[in-house]
Design a protein around this nucleic acid. Structure first.
Length: 306
DNA sequence: AGCCGAAGACTTCCCCACCG
DNA sequence: CGGTGGGGAAGTCTTCGGCT
């Protein structure tokens, strides 16, 4: 995006926030000019992260992106490529990418390794589904050989054998999908129940996915929003689910009340976030991401240009 | 009303690679 | 060879929903 477009977008968001502040409900946290500047910058960064997947869907994707033996391997681009002809494999890659996360230093290396970079043939979904125990055993046997690291969101995950380790997570995911029959049927049953409402379908899946080990709020939110962005499921986050997290809740308290130790509870805050999201029209994932990042330094506008 | 379990873009601690 | 910082494992504390 060109500079003046970014500034125009910032101006529009600021105007929309001010209108909401005056006409709907006060936003005590962005009354100060530097706070407003910082929050708008976070909204724009979050919009870019969401739009990034839409951007790569429109561009040609090289063959190396789908090959785990290639350093260019990228599970999200691979999922985009496969979403049409091999949807089951695409879902599996989104799951692997979410479980591992993208590490700042090693990038997608851990996903490559778990997908079978060093093997004669990759651990495809068909292979994992046919014998999840064989995949779990292989992970445990090789757990100390993997060089890739977990991403920031997944920094409490472990490759070591045990009830909380990656091998156990993979077993529980395979069992969860097997229950529906397939990934495609997993999405279809939710959309049937929701009668095609993308936000209701998201809420249903968010609850059903509790069965997947180690997939708490962050894991489920990241996995399901990515399915939507890649185009594998017509679902859309209906809530920030801040009752299960501290970052977005702190951000919402700061934004609406101007202080992190306000008495507003998660339900009240969630209602206000919902109203503000409808006003701005940016989507719940952007609201969640922006509030969470903003509360870390609410009065510091960190320009990436300088 | 109050207990209990679950979960966390937590918090703390320890280890190790890296650096001067 | 001691300081430093990142990463992994384990430990706290708070919140909240479910349950009685």
């Amino acid at each position: 995006m060109r500079g003046h477009e970014k500034e125009q977008r910032a101006g529009e968001l600021e105007a929309s926030l001010l209108e909401f502040h005056k006409q709907v409900m006060p936003l005590h946290g962005v009354v100060q000019a530097e706070n407003m500047l910082a929050f708008v910058a976070q909204l724009i960064d979050s919009l870019h992260r969401v739009e990034y997947v839409h951007a790569i869907r429109k561009r040609p994707i090289g063959a190396g992106r789908t090959d785990p033996r290639n350093p260019l391997f990228d599970p999200i681009r691979a999922a985009v490529v496969m979403s049409k002809d091999q949807p089951e494999e695409a879902f599996w890659l989104v799951f692997l990418a979410t479980h591992c996360g993208r590490n700042l230093r090693t990038e997608w290396q851990l996903v490559r390794e778990l997908y079978g970079a060093s093997e004669a043939a990759p651990w495809t979904w068909a292979r994992v589904l046919a014998d999840p125990q064989a995949y779990a055993d292989w992970i445990e046997d090789h757990h100390d050989e993997f060089q890739g690291k977990f991403g920031n969101h997944r920094k409490y995950e472990s490759l070591k054998p045990g009830v909380h380790g990656t091998s156990a997570v993979m077993m529980s995911y395979a069992a969860w999908i097997k229950d529906f029959g397939s990934h495609v049927q997993m999405v279809a049953q939710a959309q049937d129940q929701a009668q095609g409402d993308p936000r209701l379908a998201f809420a249903l899946l968010y609850n059903q996915m509790r069965d997947v080990l180690r997939f708490g709020r962050t894991g489920r939110f990241d996995y399901l929003t990515m399915l939507g962005k890649v185009g594998l499921a017509a679902i859309d986050a209906d809530s920030t689910y801040m009752n299960e997290a501290t970052g977005p809740k702190r951000g919402a308290r700061l934004l609406f009340d101007g202080q992190i130790d306000s008495k507003s509870n998660a339900r009240m805050l969630e209602g206000r976030v919902s109203a503000l999201e409808r006003h701005l029209g940016v989507g719940m994932q952007v609201m969640e991401d922006a509030m969470c990042n903003w509360q870390k330094s609410p009065n510091r506008y960190l320009s990436f240009r300088g």
